[in-house]
């Protein structure tokens, strides 16, 4: 008797398979505190030390590798150049523009208070 029931599968719990969510690089991801631009703002000025004149290629490599690793953490699946393109495009939105302006303003204030 039990076997017949099993065959019909009426008692079994119905499992709904969810479609895998594709990670997308959008504003919310770009603005995430742990991997997005806030991380870049926090860390980049401290981590990157340049040698300046006479070491241009080394400086460029250093800068690029830092950004590449940051972009890799931000959006694993895309290649560096593609990620940069996506980010650039996101920068045109109203929200991103406002954020960017406020970041610049922050620094401006800081710079102003330092000189005073």
């Amino acid at each position: 008797k039990d076997g017949a029931k099993d065959n019909l599968g009426l008692d079994e719990e119905v499992k709904i398979k969810r479609k895998r969510v594709n990670v997308k690089l959008d504003e919310t991801r770009l603005l995430r505190e742990d991997i997005g631009i806030p991380k870049l703002r926090r860390e980049a000025p401290k981590r990157l030390r340049f040698k300046g004149k006479g070491h241009e290629y080394r400086d460029a490599a250093k800068l690029l590798s830092y950004y590449q690793l940051w972009a890799d953490d931000l959006y694993k699946k895309a290649r560096f150049r593609d990620t940069l393109q996506i980010i650039e495009k996101l920068g045109h939105s109203r929200r991103m523009k406002m954020e960017r302006e406020s970041w610049v303003m922050d620094n401006k204030k800081k710079a102003g208070s330092n000189t005073q």
Binding site: I37, L40, R41, A44, P45, Y67, L84, I87, E88, G91, H92, M96, R100, W103, V104, D106, N107, A111
Partner: peptide, 11 residues
């Protein structure tokens, strides 16, 4: 100007 680190990404 360290804010350029962010602005490097954008137009």
């Amino acid at each position: 100007r360290p804010e350029l680190y962010v602005e490097l990404l954008f137009t």
